[in-house]
Design a protein around this nucleic acid. Structure first.
Length: 362
DNA sequence: AACACGGGGGC
DNA sequence: GCCCCAGTGTT
């Protein structure tokens, strides 16, 4: 369908219809009671790739811990990551801290107030810049997120593959046209995303009660379940993590992950990754130092196994708990350090590690 | 343009 | 168990 010919008027009535729908159906969420750009920014970063139900308690805790951008700028990054623990995509937390410090130090604590300037901040891309610019400052710039792709693809019958650059331009251009007819850009942006999230859902959209049912290209041809078109599906990589948990005098040895891999700046145990599952300890290649500790140490129990599913990796983990003899307690590999349980609880850790600790020592 | 980056929910 | 969801930065 050619949405540029707007014979039935949907292109100009779309935004007001959704604004009206939003007034009746919007959820009461904490970040909808503020126009403080700091809090809107915080909520938007948390909600990237994250469902409202999962993000909401994190937002509450962050606002409590850091009421202003200056508070966040002064925070210890480890503490911030600890608050972020469990949300995933930890670069969001690192970028959050970096931008908080930038706004505090270089912009005197005043958040950028235009789409253009917001885009310059680390962790703020086109979506988040549009969200903050419209919600906090009323700028007439459209948000284009996954919800928007879905709603527009269906209503306007766009069959382009949304993963392509060309399609992104198509959607951005249409979105820019549609927001021109909005009574209030902020309300319209909230409305179209809320509509996608709770009404025009990926599976089983509620077409029978849809306010644009008779203008929806997908509904009128019975193809709503086929849109939007998305080509790329990430294959899941299989990984095998052999963890060695060294224990001595009630302390455990952990290290900060610094390699360019998942969970950067989070803490885990000594890790030997193998490219296939190893059933026997002797089959795992070990550095001399570690080999000696394991040889002379005491394997406390059979290894504990668990699986951590990420969107793009399946990690099969095996945890070997080793009691280290006194003589070797000071000969750990350089990156490992001893931590008491109370210290460990304050360190940011991947869910895989938290689950193991809870299960083994909780 | 392709890829990497966590975790959770529905059925 | 297998499917779904999704912005930004880097290469």
């Amino acid at each position: 369908m050619n949405w540029q010919s707007d014979s039935n008027g949907i292109r100009t009535t779309f935004a007001p219809i959704l604004e009206q729908w939003y007034a009746l159906h919007k959820r009461d969420l904490p970040w909808r009671h503020t126009v403080d750009p700091y809090r809107i920014w915080l909520s938007e970063i948390i909600l990237q790739q994250t469902r409202v139900a999962q993000g909401k308690p994190y937002y509450e805790r962050f606002v409590e811990a850091y009421p202003t951008v200056v508070d966040m700028a002064q925070a210890d990054e480890r503490e911030l990551l600890r608050l972020w623990q469990g949300l995933g995509y930890y670069s969001r937390a690192r970028n959050l801290h970096q931008t908080a410090r930038y706004v505090t130090d270089k912009l005197a604590g005043k958040f950028p107030d235009t789409y253009h300037d917001l885009l310059k901040m680390k962790g703020i891309g086109t979506y988040t810049a549009a969200a903050i610019a419209s919600f906090a400052f009323g700028e007439r710039v459209p948000v284009v997120d996954g919800n928007v792709y879905r709603v527009l693809a269906r209503v306007f019958g766009i069959t382009e593959d949304i993963t392509t650059t060309a399609a992104k331009k198509t959607f951005a251009s249409l979105a820019m046209q549609l927001i021109q007819s909005a009574n209030d850009p902020a309300t319209y942006n909230q409305a179209i995303m809320e509509f996608g999230a709770i009404h025009c859902t990926p599976v089983a959209p509620d077409c029978l009660l849809c306010p644009v049912q008779q203008q929806c290209a997908a509904f009128l041809t019975g193809r709503q379940h086929l849109l939007p078109v998305k080509s790329k599906k990430a294959p899941v990589r299989e990984r095998f993590f052999n963890y060695f948990i060294f224990r001595h005098n009630g302390r455990l040895a952990l290290r900060e992950r610094t390699t360019r891999d998942i969970w950067q700046n989070l803490y885990d145990f000594h890790l030997q990754e193998t490219d296939e599952p190893k059933t026997a300890l002797r089959d795992i290649p070990l550095a001399d130092l570690v080999g000696q500790i394991i040889q002379e140490g005491v394997l406390v129990a059979p290894p504990v196994e668990s699986v951590q599913l990420l969107s793009h990796q399946r990690i099969r983990a095996k945890f070997y708990l080793i009691d280290v003899p006194d003589a070797l307690a000071n000969s750990l590999p350089i990156d490992l350090q001893w931590y008491l349980p109370t210290e460990i609880s304050k360190l940011p850790k991947p869910v895989l590690i938290t689950n193991y600790l809870d299960q083994q020592f909780g």
